[in-house]
Amino acid sequence: MKNKIGLNQEKVQELSEKLNDLLANYQLFYQNVRGFHWNIKGEKFFELHIKFEEFYDDAVLKVDEIAERILTLGGTPLHRMEDYLEISTIKSIKSDNIGKEAVGYVIDNFSTLIQKERVILDLSDQADDEGTNSLMSDYISQTEKTLWMLNAYMRS
């Protein structure tokens, strides 16, 4: 059975569930990075304050794109914080961390997100879902580059 955009309904349902999981993880990532932005201290304050803002600005755009993709597939995006907290692999982090410790958490969070994006990429390929495939491919490329840069920063 096909959905309204011509994709296999069963495969799309699984994709929607995985996308909701990614949505929940991006929401927790957003909150973590927002807290780091607000509470960063130390000698790297200026550069990290700006970088964390870049990360949460990007995350809020991705949250919207993921939710809209779920809707496009015919699913319903989660929207309650309770749901996000229940299914997210990324956990809420107290934001009184400074400097490299906060960057380490961001690296861990990005590593979780990219793993989930790769699973969705594989599923979207199997479902012939070019829209989700393209979205995840873009996210993965961006996250790989960001992880490379953050890991280089941690070596300083």
Rank of each mutant, 00 (worst) to 15 (best):
M1F: 15
K2G: 04
L7E: 07
E10I: 14
E10L: 08
K11A: 12
V12Y: 03
V12M: 14
E14A: 10
L15N: 05
E17W: 02
K18P: 03
L22Q: 04
A24E: 02
Y26R: 04
Q27C: 15
Q31H: 07
Q31E: 07
N32K: 10
R34K: 14
R34Q: 14
F36A: 08
H37L: 11
K41A: 15
E43D: 05
F46S: 06
E47D: 14
E47Q: 15
F52A: 02
E53M: 05
D58F: 00
A59M: 05
V60F: 09
L61Q: 04
L61N: 05
D64F: 13
I66R: 00
R69T: 01
I70H: 07
T72I: 11
L73W: 04
T76A: 14
H79N: 08
R80D: 11
D83T: 12
D83H: 10
D83K: 08
T89F: 03
E101Y: 04
V106T: 15
I107P: 06
S111Y: 08
L113K: 10
I114R: 09
E117V: 06
L121D: 09
L121G: 01
L121I: 06
L121R: 09
D122P: 00
S124F: 08
S124Y: 07
D125R: 13
Q126H: 11
L135H: 05
S141W: 03
E144I: 15
T146C: 13
L147R: 01
W148P: 07
M149N: 13
M149Q: 10
